[in-house]
Computed example of a mutant assay.
Amino acid sequence: MSGVPITSSELANLWMTYQEKTMIMRIMEHFIEHADHEEKQLLQAHYDAAAKAIEYITGIFENEGAVIPIGFTESDVNKGAPKLFDFLYDIFYLNMMTKMEMSLFSLYCGMSYRKDINEFFINIAAEAQTMNYKAAQHLLEKGVLVRPPFVSMPKEVHFVEDKKYRGGLNPFRETRSLNTIEVSLIHHAVETNLVGMQLMIGFAQVAENKEVQDYLVKGMKLSKKIEMELGDFLRQSFIEPPATHAGKATTSKISPFSDKIMMYNTGLLTSFGLGSNALGGAFSLRNDLPAKMSLLSKDIFSFAQEGGKLMIKNGWMEEPPQIEDRNQLTK
């Protein structure tokens, strides 16, 4: 173990990873309990990797004299509860969450300077990439994951010569078809929100707290709104948005999870949605797309703010490590 003290960013990223990985372990425990053999192997592999990451972070904190976070424990999962999600949703969830982990842990790599911590984030980012690949391949083999549309390969290089290329907001002008960058970003957003919508449906029907239930229903409706409004851009270019018959919530009313963990999971995905929307707006060259994504981001931000207040109200928001308040020295 390095004798170099950890920085504020390394502490923050390790703390956030502890929260996320303990959550993943609890969710995986329910999925593993009900999974078929083939899916169980994938889920167990991700569970084992998460447990190993938690063990490493715990060792770092103990060595640095830092308190171990609470995160999510066995009290946040109700073992023996009926299956909350149906055919292959567990692998859709794994595919979605490892996409998020790839982004987060790659970012944390660039924010870590101590050799052992940097290597830790490199390793778990690689693990997330591998697991995402395996989950996607499994869904493709089962015929339930919809690929983005195939296109003809370009034969010539072209440069944009007309300002109309960036058009889209003027209803009296013809709008060009989407380019492949725009299609890829929209497809990703629609695909993610379809999985997220089913998660909200399942969570909402088993939530014990009425305010939490109402909030999760809002999340379900917001996911549907995003899927419909972004899907319309694809339809206007004669492209069908992704959809699948698999990965739905069951009708169970018995919760396998605490309201606390369901709210945290929702908040994590909401934050990821904000980042994805910002990325989509930044790389879209048709000006109606950033405009639409900005409006949706406002809705997502409001939803996130409401969720944060609800978690604080119920005492579910664990406080991140705090910088010392130097202002106290002047009083």
Score class of each variant (00 low, 15 high):
Leu216Phe: 02
Thr330Trp: 14
Tyr93Ala: 01
Ser237Glu: 02
Gln205Lys: 08
Val146Asp: 13
Ile91Met: 01
Ile186Pro: 10
Ile70Glu: 06
Gly196His: 01
Leu216Gln: 10
Asn132Val: 03
Glu64Asp: 01
Asp325Glu: 10
Ala51His: 01
Met263Val: 13
Gly280Gln: 04
Asn118His: 15
Gly59Lys: 13
Thr7Trp: 12
Met1Phe: 13
Leu285Cys: 00
Asn132Phe: 06
Gly219Asp: 12
Glu74Arg: 08
Phe61Arg: 11
Gly315Trp: 12
Pro82Tyr: 09
Thr192Lys: 00
Trp15Cys: 07
Val77Met: 03
Leu178Asn: 04
Asn118Pro: 06
Pro154His: 01
Gly231Trp: 04
Ile60Asp: 09
Glu29Tyr: 12
Glu191His: 00
Lys309Cys: 12
Asp48Phe: 04
Arg26Trp: 13
Glu191Val: 07
Asn314Lys: 05
Phe61Ser: 11
Phe72Pro: 06
Ala53Trp: 03
Ile60Phe: 00
Met262Asn: 00
Phe283Thr: 00
Glu141Gly: 05
Asp299His: 10
Tyr165Leu: 11
Leu185Met: 08
Gly247Arg: 00
Leu269Cys: 02
Met1Ala: 14
Glu33Met: 08
Gly167Tyr: 00
Met23Tyr: 15
Met311Gln: 12
Met16Cys: 15
His34Lys: 05
Asp90Pro: 03
Leu279Met: 13
Glu240Met: 07
Val206His: 03
Glu10Ser: 08
Gly168Tyr: 08
Leu169Phe: 12
Ala50Ile: 08
Asp36Val: 12
Ser237Lys: 11
Met317Thr: 10
Ile117Pro: 08
Gly273Glu: 05
Asp116Phe: 06
Gly65Ile: 09
His37Trp: 14
Glu182His: 04
Arg166Thr: 14
Met197Tyr: 03
Tyr108Ala: 11
Ser112His: 10
Lys142Pro: 00
Met1Val: 14
Met293Phe: 10
Ile70Asp: 10
Trp316Lys: 12
Leu88Arg: 02
Asp232Asn: 14
His245Cys: 05
Tyr264His: 12
Ser294Thr: 14
Gly80Tyr: 11
Lys313Pro: 00
Ile254Met: 05
Val212Thr: 01
Asp214Thr: 09
Gln129Arg: 13
Thr130Arg: 12
Thr250Pro: 09
Ile201Thr: 01
Asn277Gln: 12
Met311Cys: 06
Thr17Arg: 09
Pro321Leu: 11
Met111Glu: 15
Thr330Glu: 13
Phe105Asn: 03
Ile300Ser: 00
Ser177Val: 02
His37Tyr: 14
Gln198Ile: 04
Pro242Lys: 02
Gly143Trp: 01
Ser75Thr: 15
Ile181Trp: 04
Gln236Lys: 15
Leu11Phe: 04
Asp325Arg: 05
Ala50Phe: 12
Leu145Val: 10
Leu329Trp: 13
Met25Val: 15
Ile68Asp: 11
Phe87Cys: 06
